[in-house]
Design a protein around this nucleic acid. Structure first.
Length: 832
DNA sequence: CGTCAGGTGCTCGCT
DNA sequence: GCACCTGACG
């Protein structure tokens, strides 16, 4: 690729100023000094350490506007990497609002993955792919791996495909191609990990497919092996901006460093306290190391928080202070008071959900002194299975909610099936799609038929579809199955013919040509010239053809036809299961979504990258999502349920990564609290169903870490289910404060005192310290027989603080907070 | 070949 | 509790 050297900067500046609307630099006046410093340091490396809610998006947007207004770069010469497509969209809109039409060229704003696809499509041949490669999702990936595992004679039971998938993903995150996996990994996956990784990559190449990790990895490989290509891109992207830098992994880091190393105009924004993707290969080290990676970097700290009340901020700071490895920031705000963070314990998960539902209703009725819309409320959970209880509850009380990041539209079974039909119609050698739908609806083709087809295909070195054709020709598959297969193959041919011809091939060919021209003009113009007349003309022509094609709707009709003729729609209409109508609805939605694209191919390309639910509904809804999905969002009212040991912090995280894992969990707690603007409510339950079994839960250690001065401990409105005071947890000084709040008036406390007196033990003056004798705190002794609402009768094995180890007759040994059991001989005087 | 019952193992988070 | 797999049966 030859590209002329950029003309002097001043030229472009003049050209730009002539084109951009003459507006004052008002965007600078709106910034605080730190933000302004970050925006105005245009050249060289910049690290923006931006705490939660300190206006980093604002600063990023201002920086881009500044770059354009100062004539440093055209919008299409700025590379801006965001963490989600949504964030990219939002930023684009904000820039568009300021810059007007000149922002339309912001073509290079997106996630690492979406940007990588764009780059990779242009250089696919350099890694042995065609530019039409397909992007596999986890489902396809897993099926492919299973085949390879079977072929390698490995027992998938003992060595699950998921394990291998995780391993490969891990390696790709570190930018290790099969030949570069270090020998220290040799024992992975029963000593055959590397071998299978290599086989997997080979197979992907034959399928002309990539997985998610490949998008980045292939780009890095191309940049490393083809300096000329890299140089082109380096020249193209004069300025690079990166959001959420703390969550980049090694591959992404290399990707960035390669692109930035020539001019070093890179600005990274991040917050080490919000690094929550360590499990995905993110390296906090990237942000901690920035200054040594890019010597002479300007480091700017954004510490003024505009989002949350002082109490919320203080609570979050108190928790995160427990982490050792931090760059350290002090967030402050000049906002006044507000409510303290609220803390409340419940009997179990269902009651927790019920209480939160009622609280949300109270918020709607003006509990905060002003109107709150359901859109302003979010429930942030640690693990997605916690969402169920809330969905169940909200469905019963009719409260509208939306689950963000749940099972996504394009991951649903019916959608993926339909897409497989489309994929196969577009590219007949998509074997994975063939396997998925050849017997769907049931066509009487089982393992035996599939084996025959596979063998034929492999023998002749052709696709499965052609293999099937061959089997039919020599009558290898007969009977009912054979007849159905014949119809299937013939239908495919017919649909494919439509894809190529009936959908107005003439227009499509023209469109393809124009687009290609436009792209190369645009690409070669990478220097400084404004769009030429030719480019504008081509652009207009492309839009016109697109418009025409859209009005033809031919591919939409074709999609409907495929689903009808294949019998797929029928399959669901005849299905009696309750979810069948919903699936049909989804299929309709899918067909409707097609209208926005020129053809099936374009649609398929788009879908593989959109990993979010895009729908923007008009109805107000409570948002339910995981803490991870909540990153970057904010809500006036936030509920944080499930703060219990083992769930949050997650046991698995601590088991796998020890102290590091715990610190990441703590950062997650920090992210959760700092999502709240006005009201933050933390809840936990004493009992929870885990794997369908009731488990007693202890309050999270993070609750103990909340600074007491900024927390209000609430007692549950009803005590009908629990003994005594309801459950707030922990057993440190903060809990003592909590205890003071209402314990002394509760029936539980009185019972305790009675018991203490009859046993002749002196009552604790104040349950303030761990050192207090366990027996004094709880009123129980070793070996006492107790009763628990859910677990029944049992004997006390051990005691520590207010926690008991109880051996239940029917449920085995459990750790229980003392207030949830009662002496067995007193059961009768407790109503429940 | 398809269906159904029963058993197993498991799930943290996401582009 | 649920998804997935297996094996028996029609």
């Amino acid at each position: 690729m030859s590209e002329s050297v950029a003309p002097p900067l001043s030229l472009s500046a003049r050209a730009l100023q002539a084109r951009a609307p003459a507006a004052p630099a008002d965007y600078l006046d709106e910034l605080n000094p730190a933000q302004r410093a970050a925006v105005e340091a245009l050249d060289g490396p910049v690290l923006m350490l931006a705490g939660a809610g300190t206006g980093k998006t604002k600063a990023l947007v201002a920086r881009i506007i500044h770059l354009v207004r100062q004539g440093r770069a055209w919008p299409n010469q700025i590379l801006a990497v965001t963490f989600t497509n949504k964030a990219a969209r939002e930023m684009k809109n904000r820039i568009l609002a300021r810059l007007g039409e000149s922002a339309e060229g912001m073509a290079w704003m997106g996630t690492f993955h979406s940007l990588s696809v764009k780059i990779l499509r242009r250089h696919a041949e350099l890694v042995g792919l065609k530019s039409s490669f397909t992007i596999l999702d986890t489902d396809d990936q897993l099926r492919l791996l299973k085949q390879l595992i079977a072929a390698a004679n490995i027992d998938e039971k003992r060595w699950p495909a998921r394990l291998l998938a995780g391993l490969i993903d891990h390696w790709k995150n570190r930018a290790w191609t099969p030949d570069r996996v270090p020998t220290s990994e040799a024992s992975a996956y029963n000593h055959r990990g590397t071998e299978l990784y290599e086989a997997y990559q080979e197979r992907l190449k034959t399928l002309n497919a990539v997985d998610f990790g490949d998008l980045l990895l292939h780009c890095v490989t191309i940049f490393q092996r083809h300096p000329d290509v890299l140089a082109d891109w380096q020249r193209r992207f004069r300025y690079i901006l990166v959001d959420e830098y703390q969550d980049t992994n090694v591959a992404q880091y290399l990707w960035l460093r390669l692109l930035a190393q020539a001019h070093r105009n890179i600005c990274c924004v991040g917050d080490d306290d919000q690094s929550i993707y360590g499990w995905r290969g993110a390296e906090v080290g990237n942000i901690l190391r920035f200054e040594s990676d890019f010597p002479g970097a300007v480091v700017v700290r954004l510490e003024q928080n505009y989002r949350s009340t002082p109490h919320i901020l203080a609570a979050a700071s108190g928790v995160i202070a427990g982490n050792a490895n931090r760059l350290g920031k002090t967030l402050w705000t000049d906002r006044p008071g507000g409510e303290k963070v609220r803390l409340i314990g419940h009997w179990d998960g269902e009651e927790e959900a019920r209480w939160i539902g009622e609280e949300i209703e109270a918020l709607q009725k003006g509990r905060l002194g002003h109107d709150i819309s359901l859109d302003d409320v979010a429930i942030l959970v640690r693990a997605s299975h916690q969402m169920r209880a809330f969905e169940d509850r909200f469905l019963t009380i009719g409260m509208p909610y939306r689950v963000i990041g749940g099972p996504r539209f394009y991951e649903r079974q019916e959608i993926r099936d339909a897409m497989a039909y489309f994929r196969l119609s577009v590219s007949p050698d998509d074997d994975l799609a063939f396997e998925r739908v050849v017997n769907l609806p049931k066509r009487g083709l089982g393992d035996k038929a599939m084996a025959t087809i596979n063998q034929a295909a492999r023998g002749a070195g052709v696709s499965l579809l052609d293999g099937a054709r061959e089997c039919l020709a020599r009558g290898a598959i007969g009977g009912k199955g054979g007849a159905a297969l014949r119809v299937f193959v013939e239908s495919m041919d017919r649909w494919r013919w439509y894809v190529e011809n009936a959908t107005n091939e003439g227009l499509l060919a023209e469109l393809r040509f124009e687009r290609k021209e436009l792209k190369s003009i645009e690409f070669l113009r990478a220097a400084d010239d404004p769009p030429s007349e030719e480019e504008k003309a081509r652009d207009a022509k492309v839009s016109m053809i697109e418009h025409k094609l859209r009005n033809l709707e031919s591919h939409v009709v074709l999609a409907e036809t495929i689903l009808e003729e294949s019998g797929y729609t029928d399959m669901w209409s005849q299905d009696k299961t309750p979810e069948a109508p919903g699936r049909l609805e989804n299929l309709k939605e899918l067909v409707k979504a097609l209208e926005q694209f020129d053809n099936l191919t374009g649609f398929l390309e788009h879908v593989s990258l959109i990993m979010e639910n895009e729908s923007e509904e008009a109805v107000e809804k409570v948002s339910i999502m995981t803490l991870h999905a909540a990153k970057g969002l904010e809500f006036p009212a936030v509920f944080l349920p499930g703060w219990e040991e083992g769930l949050f912090p997650s046991q698995r995280s601590m088991d796998e990564s020890g102290q590091k894992g715990l610190e990441e969990e703590r950062r997650l707690a920090y992210v959760g609290i700092t999502r709240a603007e006005e009201l933050c409510t933390i809840t936990f339950a004493s009992n929870r169903r885990v794997y369908g079994q009731w488990q007693s839960q202890l309050p999270s250690r993070f609750i103990d870490e909340l600074p007491g001065d900024h927390v209000d401990v609430l007692s549950p409105p009803t005590l009908h289910n629990s003994y005594g005071t309801g459950g707030y947890g922990g057993s440190n000084s903060f809990d003592a404060r909590a205890a003071k709040a209402d314990v002394y008036n509760s029936p539980g406390w009185k019972r305790l005192q009675d018991r203490v007196q009859t046993r002749g033990i002196s009552a604790p003056r104040e349950a303030a310290h761990l050192t207090i004798d366990a027996q004094a705190v709880t009123g129980f002794g070793l070996g006492d027989r107790v009763f628990h609402q859910k677990f029944g009768y049992g004997n006390i094995l051990a005691m520590e603080g207010d926690k008991l180890d109880v051996d239940f007759e029917h449920s085995g040994v459990k750790k229980i907070v003392a207030r949830f059991v009662v002496a067995a001989d007193q059961v009768s005087d407790v109503p429940f």
